[in-house]
Design a protein around this nucleic acid. Structure first.
Lengths: 168, 168
DNA sequence: AAAGATTGAGGGCTCAATCTTA
DNA sequence: TAAGATTGAGCCCTCAATCTTT
């Protein structure tokens, strides 16, 4: 292949390939174990987490899409499917006739309560358990740096979840 | 939510959330810039890279699926779509009547030659340019460690998962 | 029977079009 | 007109079923 561009040297290429591979593996392990253990997908879990973060267990579609960093359209489709499974329901928004609320159901609460501990355990196992304190600190440093690159580049967009608690 | 499980502390939770976010951002930047500049998806590129790695520009379906860490089924579908676009073709395998070869086409070679330099530049920009040599070394260390966890666990690939999420 | 490969169904995501209310 | 939300088409991935060759 051609180059008058700064190519990657062997070390860099290996690092890059490993980065891609490790990420795929971690994502796939999380997805599979969560699905097997609870019948929820990662996406389901993320939706439920943001709903349980709200005291009333309900969030407007646009706000929820912002929290998830999803397109509204994607959320709308996903909520439809989750509604069919009884995990959430939709309600009209009292403040704004255009708005729609997504509300967690009793079934949805049971599902996330059942799923969360195992999921946290998996995150621990695939990430934290393998790393020494030094490595963890260093990884935090690296990720902060990389996150900053993107924050500087791509628009700000939102956020601020002040509610702590559950882990994605 | 309930716990008699080691939960994540604040630092760990922040690290985990940043990990997920950074990965999503990097993947999405790469995908977008590659698509805009060359009309290829990341998946297309990965297929083409492994084909150009072979001297004859051809790899058997199962081998290619192994290299990509994809399901054979996914690869089969993807190859069909790439074939329709003229990027690759299929050929019978001389050694094994059951086998099938995926072969890169002239168009496919042109496509990857056109796409690669820009892609490498993007990788450089979102990853290496942001990190000091120390940070890069440390990241390599961390990733090697994480990769090892998975290699130990999921070495034997694919078929016949008995459905237990057993932890070794 | 087992391995290589493909296929079809169904879920999931993106993009553009649409409908309703502000 | 713009914002909130949904819908439908089209592509992609997964899972199970299928077909062929070993």
């Amino acid at each position: 292949v051609s180059d008058d561009v700064a190519w990657l040297d062997d070390q860099e290429e290996r690092l890059w390939r490993t980065w891609v591979k490790v990420n795929a593996q971690i994502a796939s392990t999380l997805q599979r174990e969560l699905q097997d253990h609870s019948g929820l997908s990662i996406s389901d879990l993320e939706v439920l987490i943001h709903l349980t973060d709200d005291p009333g267990g309900q969030v407007r579609v646009t706000d929820l899409a912002g929290l998830l960093q999803w397109e509204r359209s994607r959320l709308s489709h996903h909520v439809r499917r989750m509604e069919r499974r009884g995990l959430v329901l939709r309600a009209e928004c009292p403040d704004d006739g255009r708005g729609a609320l997504v509300v967690i159901s009793v079934v949805g609460r049971k599902a996330i309560e059942h799923a969360a501990p195992g999921h946290v355990q998996t995150v621990r196992r695939v990430l934290f358990d393998a790393l020494s304190p030094d490595q963890t600190a260093c990884l935090a440093d690296v990720l902060a740096r990389l996150a900053a690159v993107h924050d500087r580049r791509s628009a700000p967009a939102v956020v601020a979840r002040t509610g702590e608690a559950v882990v994605v």
